[in-house]
Amino acid sequence: MLDKHLSHTLSDWMQQETEQPIILSSRIRLARNLENFVHPLMYDEQTALEVLEEVSAVLKPHYEEVRLSALDKNERQILVIKHLVSKELLAQDHGAVFLNEDESVSIMVNEEDHIRIQVLGPELSLDELYSKALAVDSLIDEKLTLSFDETLGYLTTCPTNIGTGLRASVMLHLPGLSIMNRMGRIAQAINRFGYTIRGIYGEGTQALGHVYQVSNQLTLGKTEEAIIEDLKQIVEQIITEEEGMRKRLKDYDYIETADRVYRSLGVLKYAQLITAEEASLRLSELKMGIDMGIVEPMPFRFNELMVAIQPPFLATLEEAIPVNEKRAKMLREHL
Rank of each mutant, 00 (worst) to 15 (best):
A189L: 15
L305I: 04
N324M: 11
S104R: 08
K132P: 00
W13I: 04
D230N: 13
V267W: 01
L283N: 04
P311W: 05
R260V: 01
E224D: 13
I200V: 14
P122A: 13
N191K: 10
L268Y: 05
P175D: 06
H114S: 07
K247F: 03
M245L: 05
L314I: 06
Q188L: 12
L24V: 10
K87Q: 12
T219D: 00
T219K: 04
I190C: 01
L41E: 10
A276D: 10
E229K: 13
L305A: 03
L268F: 09
G163T: 07
L166C: 05
D141C: 06
E333W: 07
G244I: 03
N191V: 02
P40Y: 06
R116P: 01
A57W: 09
E150R: 14
K143M: 10
V58Y: 06
G204E: 11
N33F: 05
I290H: 04
A328M: 08
Q233D: 12
I117A: 05
L2F: 11
A31K: 01
R263D: 10
R198C: 04
E50C: 05
I294L: 15
I228W: 02
V80A: 08
R32T: 00
Y254G: 02
L84M: 15
Q118E: 09
F302Q: 03
K60P: 00
Y43A: 11
S138N: 10
Q77M: 13
A276E: 13
M292C: 14
R167G: 03
S26G: 09
E45I: 10
I117S: 03
D3F: 10
L268I: 15
A279Y: 08
I274T: 04
R260D: 05
H83W: 05
R260A: 05
V105K: 07
Q310H: 11
D291N: 11
I321Q: 11
M183R: 09
Q92N: 12
E242M: 12
T196A: 15
M108C: 08
I228H: 03
I81E: 15
I239P: 00
V267G: 00
E304K: 14
E225V: 14
Q15E: 15
F302A: 03
L268H: 04
S56P: 00
V51F: 09
L152C: 08
I255E: 15
G244K: 07
R301S: 09
D102N: 13
V170P: 00
M288G: 02
V267C: 02
V80Y: 08
H62N: 12
K82Y: 07
R29W: 06
K329S: 13
N216H: 09
S215N: 08
